[in-house]
Amino acid sequence: MTLPGSDEIIEDLSFFDDWEQRYQYIIDLGKSLSPMTPEDKTEERLVRGCQSSVWLKSTVQGEHLHFDVESDAIIVNGLLALVMAAYQDKSPAQILAFDIDGYFQALDLERHISPTRGNGLRAIVGTIRNLASQPRQ
């Protein structure tokens, strides 16, 4: 399964009226991420939350940034898929222009990306935006 775009996800999620279906959809989205190889899951790429951990590997591919991400928690993987729908294989300018907080608000998931949540998601978003704002070599 390939990842739908962020607009499509907003539309899909708006169809569900109960939380179970919403989270089942998010969990399934997470399963569409390609798992990272054990060699790629290094200590330097680990963002440790106090509840769950996330690995992030980034590569420059031409004008775009490509990310490999994985969490040990499946709902966080689902949330990461939502983030990837916004950032994957986009240019730094596109990444910086994307309103991630507005996106999570539109999904009614803003509390999962709040700085207080110990799932590492906020840190991942911060890292990606930092990478996107670095001058290219």
């Binding site: 939380w19 989270y23 509840q51 769950s52 928690a73 499946i74 709902i75 799932n119």
Partner: peptide
């Protein structure tokens, strides 16, 4: 087969507050 954070997450949605993590 389930990460504690996922368990806590689904419990939270049902109004049950527990702690997960280390």
């Amino acid at each position: 087969g389930s990460h504690p954070a996922d368990v806590g997450f689904i419990l939270d949605r049902q109004g049950v507050a527990i702690r997960t993590g280390d």
